[in-house]
Amino acid sequence: MSSIFGSQAFGIMLTMLFYVFGQWVYKKTKLPFFSPFIVATVLLILYVEISHITLSDLLTDLSGIHVFLGPLIVSLAIPIVGKMDLIKRNFVVIFVGSLVGALVSIFTVLVIAPMLGIDETLVASLIPKASTTPIAIEISERLGGIRAITVAVVVLSAVIGAVVIPSLIKVLRIKDARIIGLSLGSTSHAIGTAKAFEFDQEAGAIASVSLVFTGVLTAIIAMFL
C-alpha cells in the first residue's frame, strides 16, 4: 500500500486533484487568496504534515512536474512572437521600462535588505523577485538562494504589486497604457498583467511582454552578481 501512496503517479495525481479543486474554489469565490496555486500548495503541505510521507519523498515524486519548468521558460517565446508588431512599435519604451524595473528591484534588495536587518542567507532568494516565477527559481538556485523562499517572495511581490500599483496609478492619474502595462508587468508579473488588462487591452499586452523582458533582463543582470 505505502508503495502506491509513495509513487510518482500518486504524487502527481494528488497535485492535479488539488489544483483542479483549487480552480473550482477560485471560480466559486473569486478571491485572489484562493488561487489554484495557493490552494494546491497549502493542501500538499497539509498532506505532508498528516501523512507518513516525508517532504523530500514527496518532492522526489513530484520531480516529474518540476522538469517542465525549463521547457516552460522556453515556451514564453510563443506569447512574445504573437505581439511582435506591438514590440516593434514600442521596443525602446518596453526595453527601458523593463530594464529599470529589473535594476531597481535588484538594487533595492541589495541596499535595503541589510538596512532592515534581513538575514543574509535570504538575500540571494530575494534578488530575483521582479522576475516571473520560473525564471526566478533558476536565478535563485544559481545565486545560492533557496527556491521555495524565492517562490514565496515572488508570489508575495506579485500580490503586493497588484494591490499597491493600481492605486498609485489612479492617485498619480497615469493614463498612458504603456506606463500602466510596464509598471504592472515588470513588478507584479502574471497577477499584474491580469490587472493591466482591467485598465485596457494595450496595457495588458504590454504587461505580458514586459513580464518576459524583466525576467530575461533580471537573469542577465544576475550574471554579474
Binding site: 489544483y19 496555486f37 503541505i45 518540476h66 515556451s75 520560473p134 527559481i137 523562499i149
Partner: peptide
C-alpha cells in the same frame, strides 16, 4: 505550459514548510 505556469512551480513552493 505558459498559461498554466503556476501548476508547474507547486513542487518548488511546497518546500516552503
Amino acid at each position: 505550459l505558459t498559461s498554466n505556469m503556476a501548476f508547474f512551480f507547486i513542487p518548488a513552493a511546497v518546500g516552503v514548510i
